[in-house]
Design a protein around this nucleic acid. Structure first.
Length: 289
DNA sequence: ACCTCGACCTGCAAGC
DNA sequence: TGCTTGCAGGTCGAGG
């Protein structure tokens, strides 16, 4: 469940369970996800109290009482589920072991948090909080799109001089953090901007933001806010930690809508799909300019 | 310094 | 039915 709204939904699901709990046991079912686990990974977690669960870009950041931070990334196919130690003969379906359960955290509350990731593009890494500023995975990340630091001037500045397409720029986590393939397409459609347009056209010659930059910022904020409000999108049955589903896939206007009529009021265009930078892009050539 | 592409993995659906 | 192919919400490193 990977883009910002999905990661934020996961964070909100895990937060009440994790915060304040102590990790009593760490099970690694394999030695690596995308990278090998750090040699002291389990030891640094075991016995630690989780004091908070935050998010930066698509990373979940669990603050530990030790001063360490557990960084977690879901990659393309990562998901968490919350289970509980069975009481008596009662077994809950979410407690049943599944294939691709790679990490199991037992908490002092009796809750069990399981990380499942078939493709293993996700990863976990422990970093000292004092070393976060030097963490390569976070270095250079662009602003949070729902934060105060993200505005038309910032976006225009990040895109000034870029020969890459707007779509590529939105996928670039150094420009703005948290968008992925779905929300890049959806926000560009909302802003009526072509994914093929040069990113540099968000800035005037002097570097000041154009109206396009303002439209795009507004679209990004609106789409992400709406998506979070309905629990993100659920594709391929990837669920929330508590087993519930997101609903934003029903609000997609272009993603996976090839051949369907454009939803822009007054537009009679048809949604098209093409491959851009190796990834599917969905858009309406009629109203996105 | 940019930009694009291939590589990393598994699982599922469509097509033959 | 079974095999092959293509495709999937991400990111990094190599090479142009």
């Amino acid at each position: 469940m990977p883009e910002l709204p999905e990661v934020e939904t996961v964070r909100r699901g895990l937060q009440p369970v994790m915060e304040g709990a102590r990790i009593t046991r760490v099970e690694l079912r394999r030695a690596d996800l995308r990278f090998p686990f750090q040699p002291d990974f389990a030891a640094r977690l075991t016995g630690q109290r989780i004091v908070g669960l935050g998010r930066r870009a698509k990373f979940l950041m669990a603050d530990l009482a030790s001063g360490d931070v557990l960084m977690m990334h879901l990659g393309m196919s990562g998901s968490f589920r919350i289970g509980a130690v069975p009481v008596g003969a009662f077994h809950h379906p979410r407690n049943v072991e599944r294939v691709n359960d790679h990490v199991v955290l037992r908490l002092s509350s009796g809750k069990i948090i399981t990380y499942n990731d078939p493709r293993r593009f996700g990863f976990m890494k422990i970093v000292a909080r004092s070393a976060l500023d030097d963490e390569p995975l976070l270095k250079g990340l662009g602003p949070e799109p729902l934060g105060n630091a993200f505005d038309a001037a910032t976006l225009a500045k990040a895109c000034a001089g870029k020969t890459a397409s707007l779509k590529a720029a939105l996928l670039n986590q150094h420009v703005v953090a948290g968008l992925g393939n779905i929300y890049a397409a959806e926000t560009l459609h909302r802003a009526r901007l072509s994914p093929k347009r040069r990113a540099s056209t968000l800035a005037s010659h002097s570097g000041a933001p154009t109206d396009r930059a303002r439209q795009l910022v507004a679209a990004i904020r609106a789409v992400l806010t709406e998506a979070i409000a309905v629990g993100g999108a659920t594709l391929r049955n990837c669920r929330h930690p508590d087993g519930k589903l997101g609903y934003f896939q029903h609000s997609f206007e272009v993603y996976n809508h090839e051949g369907q009529p454009c939803t822009t009021p007054g537009c009679d265009g048809v949604v098209r799909r093409f491959v851009q930078n190796g990834r599917a892009t969905f858009w309406c050539p009629k109203c996105q300019k």
